[in-house]
Design a protein around this nucleic acid. Structure first.
Lengths: 247, 247
DNA sequence: CGCCGCATTGACGTTCGTCAAGTCTAGTGG
DNA sequence: CCACTAGACTTGACGAACGTCAATGCGGCG
């Protein structure tokens, strides 16, 4: 419910640690400076606050600097379905472009900070800076491909396979950001995991328990230790899952 | 298996009946002519031929002029999962942008014809023609939003709801192209429908039979007559589905 | 005409959802 | 500092929905 406080800090993409994830590579330093113009402000977001809601006017894309988000689509009756979890270096808001309105909502699962990039500036700049145009197209295409993977998962995997794919995907993305390849802390509840995976929270919980019984992972609440990554991978592969291309 | 024959016809977007679906609106006639430059050739595609395969080098987007396609992602063992059905006026190939390789495959379900649009030309032109840039961004965003709807369906609907949503979506898109709002011919098998909906073909068949028993549709093989659209809509809505925004 | 692929239908099994009880943990206030 | 509480998580028993296997029907094409 709470709206985040607008925090106006002047930005420098050139100094940003997320640069190599967030920005196109091979920019001249001059082009990098002009990319700064793309970012209007940074915005701090508190845990459980909403970055944008479904139906809200679309103006900007958001590049996550720090923190962890979920995006979800809401149906009429308040039921909502999680369609993705996003972490530092990833972009959210692309859904808003087509109708100038957001069709999903983004909620912070922990305190964080995003770069607010007004889309008209993105378009303006990407008409001039070719590498940026490329980058925007790739970002959107990547999101399309990621969703293909999710659709494959939802359409053809069983509970164990879904959870295994989910854990592998998460730890893979975290590892790419310098975290452990075997330990992670879940920022979301079992219910949110279930919503994402198309399962009920009880099934998620039971499946975790089965993994623990098989010594594949150790679970202490939201702290997950992956003991046998090979086994996890095997669970996904054996049924023909498209491996970690789930982004 | 069969590759389609390359059919080099010079193109005129200005005369194309798909123009208002496929192209941005509000182009000057000069801009429309320059859009022709975007289309290298048209290509006829025969039923069951593959437009592009997973892993294949990405060079072009394809705008469907006529015909009906399925796109699917393939897993290692040959199992594949249908992720969408595309008809005239829709664009396929966006998945290839991110890695310069296609990550899904497109197969024609009936004879048709596509406009081949080399992506480097699309990028070049959309740096000059602002309306085209807009249009490309909206196309990609629309695909993202469509997939959100599919994920919602796969993640939270039961078989009846999925099939109802599927039929409503199909007939809605066909109607927008001048076809009946109550009759349609399915170009795909029950198995392909099932793959798309995350169901087995037997379940699709049984669900059709139930709809017939309830006088909601009449089914004769692939010929579908929707007798009670309201009932179909009600099946989807009651469970909180995001209605026909499934594109 | 006969074959082959597609579709339908039935019987049965598995997986997951539902309902309900109970446990654990973090955060709050006395 | 500890007791208390609310929310999150776990676990069990049961049932519903869907998958699996198998037999049969139908229609189009050679």
């Amino acid at each position: 419910m709470t709206r985040m406080n607008i925090h106006s800090v002047k930005v420098a993409c050139a100094n940003c640690s997320m640069q190599q994830i967030c920005m196109p590579s091979g920019l001249s330093s001059q082009e990098l400076v002009s990319c700064d113009d793309m970012v209007a402000t940074r915005r701090k977001v508190k845990r459980h606050s909403t970055l944008f809601r479904s139906g809200e006017k679309f103006t900007s894309l958001y590049a996550i600097r720090t923190g962890f988000f979920k995006t979800s689509v809401a149906s009429e009756e308040g039921r909502d379905h999680v369609i993705g979890f996003q972490m530092a270096g990833e972009m959210i808001g692309l859904d808003g472009i087509v109708n100038d309105n957001h069709s999903c909502e983004a909620v912070a699962l922990e305190d964080g900070e995003v770069c607010v990039m007004p889309f008209h500036r993105v378009e303006e700049l990407s008409r001039k800076v070719r590498a940026l145009q490329r980058h925007v197209h790739k970002l959107m295409s990547r999101e399309i491909v990621r969703e293909h993977g999710v659709m494959l998962m939802l359409g053809s995997m069983r509970a164990e396979e879904r959870l295994a794919a989910f854990l592998l995907n998460l730890v893979h993305r975290l590892h790419a950001r310098g975290f452990s390849h075997s330990e992670l802390i879940l920022r979301m509840t079992r219910e949110e995991i279930g919503s994402y995976l198309g399962l009920k929270l009880e099934t998620v919980s039971r499946t975790f328990s089965r993994f623990v019984a098989d010594s594949i992972v150790a679970v202490q609440q939201r702290h997950i230790h992956i003991l046998n990554q090979e086994a996890l991978r095997h669970i996904v592969i054996q049924s023909g899952g498209l491996h970690p291309s789930l982004q």
